[in-house]
Amino acid sequence: MHAGTDRVPSRRGPVRGPQSLVSGLVLVALALFAIWLTSDLPQGTLRAMGPAMLPRWLAVGIGLCGIALVVVGLTRDGHPLEGFSLRGPVVVGIAILCFGLTIRGFAFGALQVPQLGLLGAGPLAIFISGFATHEARFRELAILALALTSFCMVLFGDLLNLPIPMYPQVFADLYPSGWSSDARLRATAGILVALAVIIFAATHRRRRAAEPIDVVPDEHAGTI
């Protein structure tokens, strides 16, 4: 896990505090980035401060802190770098991305994602993010995804009345035209709960046998 020490470039003898060194370098990089970003803005005078004055001085301060940390990392014994696992951040990142893309639909150049509303985005986010840990179980996540989405629909849509897209319009049109939007919402939530219960009941007996297959092997958890 602690692969940091030999990855850090060291010309001036052994690095004694790799964590400090690397975090110092990150701060310096951030400072340079901020200075570059504000380079086209006027700094102004004290009497009429321009938009760039404060960010630029902050960047200088951050850079100095970074340099100090680099010095500390080179001269004093400190913590090694902690290992990064890839699985968690990548999977959770994808889950959040999927939620954002599908909740209201998204158009970005050639990329066109249809609006799925909470009905699509919710289960998608739960299901994908669930696999961020190697303990993920397919059946559990399926039930959780359905039940929680149903709960959220009633909570956010019905009780709190927040303007969140609940389902694609095509889906809402499936209901009889006489139904009010609240009735459609509740019916949808009911269907989801029913599905969750059906999955629970249908797989209840076979759970024991299925368990070993459900557990995803550990080898995906990588480090850098």
Binding site: D173, Y175, S177, I198, I199
Partner: peptide, 26 residues
């Protein structure tokens, strides 16, 4: 079996949709 039940449920609902006049929803 599950999928077929769900599909049937949705199909029933879909059949009832009809022509609409504005405004039908909020």
């Amino acid at each position: 079996k599950l999928i077929s039940i769900a599909a049937a449920a949705l199909g029933l609902v879909a059949g009832a949709a009809s022509a609409q006049t504005y405004p039908q929803r909020p």
